[in-house]
Design a protein around this nucleic acid. Structure first.
Lengths: 299, 299
DNA sequence: GCCGGCCATCGGAAAAATCGATCAAAATAT
DNA sequence: ATATTTTGATCGATTTTTCCGATGGCCGGC
C-alpha cells in the first residue's frame, strides 16, 4: 500500500516545470538539488508515470508531466487560497455566524442591526434562526447555532451569558383606561386586571410575571397569541391590558393601533437583553465584541 | 517563517468533521488519537484560526472550521483526481502526444490514421505539426514535439529511429510518355529527362536523388512547387516527369489528373517511413507500440 | 464529590527528509 | 580522440519530523 504525493512534491514539480533544471528549481525551492531530485523521483513512482525527461542539458516535460503540472498548479492555487482565506477568517465581524434570536426581540433589533452590519461589515454573514429560548438553547448545544440573542436571565448549563442592556416592560392599555389617571404606576395596580400574555414558552411571559409578581391565575392567555402583534390587537379591542417590552413599544408595532404605553414608577420591571454562547466556544472574544457592538448601536 | 499545512492534516480535519470525535476520526485515518490531535492542533496554529470546539462529549466545528472543511474536501477531491488521472496517463494510446509529420507523408497517412485512432482510442489526443524534417527535428529537440513521423534515413543526433515500412518511389509521367513502352524500367532511364522535384529541404527530393543516383544538374526545381500536388499538376502539363511515393500515387492526389505511375524494375528505389524520438525519452515503449500500430493499419 | 469519557501532552522510538559529497552519463570544447 | 563541464542520481550521515503508547488534566454527568 503506497502512500500519496505531498504538497511539497507538487510544488517541486511545478518549480521544475518552470525552471527546466533540477539545480535551479532546487534553488527556487530553497532545498538541495538532491532533495528535489529524490522528491521528483518519488512523485513519479507514486503516480506511476514518467513526468520528466532527463537530459544532460536540463529537463523536458512529458505530455503527462505537463498535464500533471497544470493540475498541480490549479491545486496549489486552491491550496493557497484556502490558507489565506482561513487567515482572515478568525477576525471579528467576518465569516459566517449562526445566530438564534427569540421572537420578542427579533423584529425590533434585527432590522436595524442587520442593515448596519451589512453596511459596516459586508463580509460578515449572519444566519438567523428565530425560535423560543428553549429551542434555541437546544440548538446551541447541538452546535447548530453559535450564538443566541435573547432575554436574560435564562437558566442554561455550560453557557456564558453577557447582558447588553435593560429592556423595561411597559404597561400597554387602551386610551381612557383607568391606569391613565394614576399618579404613580405600580405593579400592584394591574392585579385583578385581565392581563394578556403570550403563550407558554415565550420567556417574555415569564419575565413579565416575575417582574410584576403575577400568578398564573392573574393572567389570561389570548387564544393563539403567538406574536406581540396579536396581543396588541387584542388590547386595542379592549379585551385586556398587557406588558410590552420597551423595544416593542418604540417600534412601529403599536403605531397603527390606538393603544398607549406607560412605564412603571418602580424599578425592576424589565427584562435584560443579552447574548449567550457555549462556555467552551473558542469564539468568546468575538462574541463579546459583537455584544459591545450591539450595545452601542441598538440602544 | 511558518510552514504550510499538509494534505494529511486536511484529511484528518475532514475525518474529524465527519466523526466529530478525535478517537473515531483517528481510527478512520488509521493513526493514533495523539497523532491526529497533534495534527489538528498544528493545523489550527498554521491557519491561525479556531476550527474546532473541544468538548468533553466530542467536538463541534466552528463556522471557520466548516468553511475550511468544505474547501478542504473540494481540494482533496481534486487531489485524488490528479492522482488517479496520472495513473491512467502512462498507458499507451492515452493522453496527449505532439506529433510532427513531414508534408510528403501527412496527407496520405494522417486522415486514415487519425480516423482510426479516434475510433479505437478516443482518449488519445494527437497534436499534429506539419513541417520539413529539419524543422521537426529541431522542435523535437526543443521538446515542443514528442515524436516524428518522417522518411528515413534521416541523420539526427540523440534520437532513436524506428523504420515502419518501405514506400517505393514510382515514376510518374504523362500517358504516352516513352517510358510507357519500356519493358523494364530502370533508374538510368530517367537520366537526361526533365525531372521535377520539390524544392530544397524536402527530404523526398533527397531520397529521390539518392535512389536514382541523380545529380543536381539532372533535375529541375519547379517554380514554387512546395507540394506534391503542384508537381503532379506540372507533370500533367507535360513539363517533365517526377518520382512519386507509392502512398501518394495510391491516394486521390493523381486521380483527377491524367498522369500514370510505374514502379521501377529495380530494388532500392524507395524511401522508408519511420518514427523518430529523442533517445532519452521515457516514452520509448509507447512510441514503439504506436509504431507497430501504424505498421499494421497504414500499410 | 467521585467517575468516566475526552482531548492534550509527554518521552522515546521509528521513519523520513535533507544535506554535502560523490558518481555516472553525456554533450561540448580542446 | 580526449578532456572538461554540466547534468541528474546516488550515497551516507545527520537532523528533523512523525508516530505511538502512556499519562495527565479537564469537564460534565451521576
Amino acid at each position: 500500500m503506497a502512500g500519496q504525493p505531498t504538497i511539497k512534491q507538487l510544488k517541486y514539480l511545478c518549480a521544475l516545470a518552470d525552471q527546466r533544471h533540477f539545480g535551479r528549481a532546487a534553488q527556487a525551492c530553497h532545498v538541495s538539488q538532491s532533495a528535489l531530485s529524490a522528491a521528483i523521483l518519488e512523485l513519479e513512482q507514486l503516480l506511476d508515470s514518467a513526468l520528466i525527461e532527463r537530459n544532460n542539458k536540463g529537463v523536458l516535460m512529458t505530455p503527462a508531466g505537463e498535464e500533471v503540472v497544470a493540475r498541480a498548479k490549479r491545486l496549489l492555487t486552491d491550496f493557497d487560497d484556502l490558507v489565506s482565506a482561513s487567515h482572515s477568517m478568525n477576525a471579528p465581524f467576518t465569516g459566517n455566524l449562526r445566530l438564534g434570536v427569540i421572537p420578542t426581540i427579533a423584529p425590533f433589533i434585527l432590522p436595524g442591526l442587520l442593515k448596519l452590519l451589512r453596511k459596516e461589515h459586508p463580509q460578515f454573514k449572519l444566519f438567523i434562526r428565530e425560535d423560543l429560548s428553549h429551542n434555541l438553547v437546544q440548538l446551541l448545544h447541538k452546535g447548530e447555532l453559535d450564538l443566541l440573542l435573547l432575554a436574560l436571565p435564562y437558566k442554561a448549563d455550560n453557557v456564558i451569558s453577557q447582558e447588553l442592556f435593560n429592556d423595561p416592560l411597559l404597561l400597554a392599555f387602551r386610551p381612557g383606561d383607568p391606569v391613565s389617571s394614576l399618579e404613580k404606576l405600580k405593579a400592584s395596580h394591574i392585579k385583578g386586571r385581565q392581563v394578556l400574555l403570550l403563550e407558554e414558552g415565550h420567556c417574555l411571559r415569564d419575565h413579565a410575571m416575575e417582574s410584576c409578581k403575577l400568578g398564573n391565575s392573574d393572567i389570561s392567555i389570548p387564544y393563539q397569541a403567538t406574536s406581540l402583534n396579536t396581543v396588541v390587537q387584542m388590547v386595542a379591542n379592549d379585551i385586556g391590558i398587557t406588558l410590552l417590552p420597551e423595544m416593542a413599544a418604540k417600534s412601529s408595532l403599536i403605531d397603527s393601533s390606538q393603544i398607549k404605553t406607560r412605564a412603571f414608577d418602580q424599578t425592576g420591571i424589565e427584562r435584560k437583553i443579552g447574548l449567550m454562547w457555549r462556555k467552551k466556544s473558542p469564539l468568546s472574544s468575538q462574541f463579546k465584541m459583537l455584544g459591545e457592538y450591539i450595545q452601542q448601536h441598538c440602544h
